[in-house]
Computed example of a mutant assay.
Amino acid sequence: MDQSPEAPKQTPMAKEIAARFREKITGPNREYEPGDRLPAARTLAKDLGVQLMTVQSAFGQLRDEGLVLTQQGRGTFVRDPSVPLGTEPGSSPAFTALASELSTIHDALRVLGERMDRLERLVDTETPPSP
């Protein structure tokens, strides 16, 4: 009898799990649409034979890339790309901080633009016409 030993099944690393789901979310044959829930991390960890932290790390990578949102007690969902980053519950803390900072900068630029407009109007009304 010719029995060749099976190659041991390799357990995927977090970056490999993230790559699989990235393809399922953004690839041409996507399996997940915006709003779809990804498998529960515990269930996926058991199915893949990896530690829960490995799956959580993979989902964290996808969240940091802006592809998914994690909602405490509800799960991980594919993010709608039409919604501005950092504005949804479950957004990456980095994106939330960035969105807040950008909003502050936008407001400051708007105020500065209004001040420039007023200054230009003042200059135009005070400058005598050229001879």
Rank of each mutant, 00 (worst) to 15 (best):
Gly86Ile: 08
Asp47Arg: 12
Arg121Gly: 14
Ser92Leu: 02
Pro93Asn: 05
Lys46Thr: 07
Ala7Gly: 07
Pro5Leu: 13
Lys46Leu: 15
Arg110Phe: 11
Ser4Arg: 11
Met1Val: 13
Glu23Pro: 13
Pro5Asp: 03
Arg20Pro: 07
Pro12Trp: 10
Ala41Leu: 00
Ser57Asp: 10
Glu23Asn: 13
Asp47Tyr: 08
Thr54Cys: 10
Gly49Leu: 06
Ala40Tyr: 13
Gly90Leu: 06
Asp64Tyr: 00
Ser130Phe: 06
Glu23Ile: 08
Met53His: 04
Asp80Glu: 08
Ser130Thr: 15
Pro28Lys: 12
Thr54Lys: 13
Met53Val: 15
Asp117Gly: 05
Gly75Gln: 01
Glu126Lys: 04
Gln61Glu: 02
Ala18His: 02
Gln3Glu: 12
Ala19His: 07
Ala14Glu: 03
Gly90His: 02
Leu44Ile: 09
Gly27His: 05
Pro129Cys: 15
Ser82Leu: 14
Leu62Cys: 01
Pro93Arg: 05
Glu33Trp: 13
Thr125Pro: 03
Leu112Ser: 13
Ala18Trp: 02
Met1His: 06
Glu16Cys: 12
Met1Thr: 14
Pro5Tyr: 04
Ala18Tyr: 01
Glu101Cys: 10
Leu62Pro: 03
Pro8Ile: 12
His106Thr: 05
Glu88Met: 14
Ala7Cys: 08
Ala97Val: 11
Arg30Leu: 01
Leu109Cys: 11
Arg118Lys: 12
Leu48Glu: 07
Phe59Trp: 01
Ile105Tyr: 13
Pro93Lys: 03
Ser57Trp: 08
Thr43Cys: 06
Gly73Met: 10
Asp107Tyr: 08
Gly73Arg: 03
Ser92Trp: 00
Glu65Asp: 03
Ser100Asn: 04
Phe77Thr: 00
Ile17Lys: 09
Leu69Pro: 00
Thr96Asp: 03
Pro131Cys: 14
Pro131Leu: 14
Pro89Tyr: 11
Pro89Glu: 12
Pro129Asp: 14
Glu88Cys: 12
Arg115Met: 14
Met116Phe: 06
Ser57Asn: 03
Lys9Arg: 12
Leu85Lys: 07
Gly60Glu: 01
Arg118Tyr: 14
Gly73Gln: 10
Asp36Glu: 06
Ala99Thr: 06
Arg22Ala: 09
Thr43Met: 11
Leu112Trp: 09
Pro81Met: 03
Leu69Tyr: 02
Tyr32Glu: 10
Leu122Val: 09
Leu69His: 01
Phe21Arg: 09
Val50Arg: 11
Arg110Lys: 12
Ser91Tyr: 01
Thr43Arg: 10
Thr125Tyr: 06
Asp124Cys: 07
Pro28Glu: 15
Phe59Ile: 01
Pro131Asn: 11
Ser91Met: 00
Glu23Ala: 13
Ser92Cys: 08
Val50His: 04
Phe95Pro: 07
Gln10Asp: 14
Leu109Met: 10
Gly66Ile: 04
Leu62Tyr: 09
Arg74Gly: 07
Gly49Arg: 14
Asp36Arg: 09
Thr96Glu: 14
Pro81Gly: 04
Phe77His: 10
Asp2Lys: 08
Ala45Trp: 06
Asp80Ser: 13
Gly60Asn: 07
Asp80Met: 06
Val55Cys: 08
Pro128Asp: 07
Leu38Gln: 02
Ala99Asp: 01
Ala97Trp: 13
Ile17Gln: 02
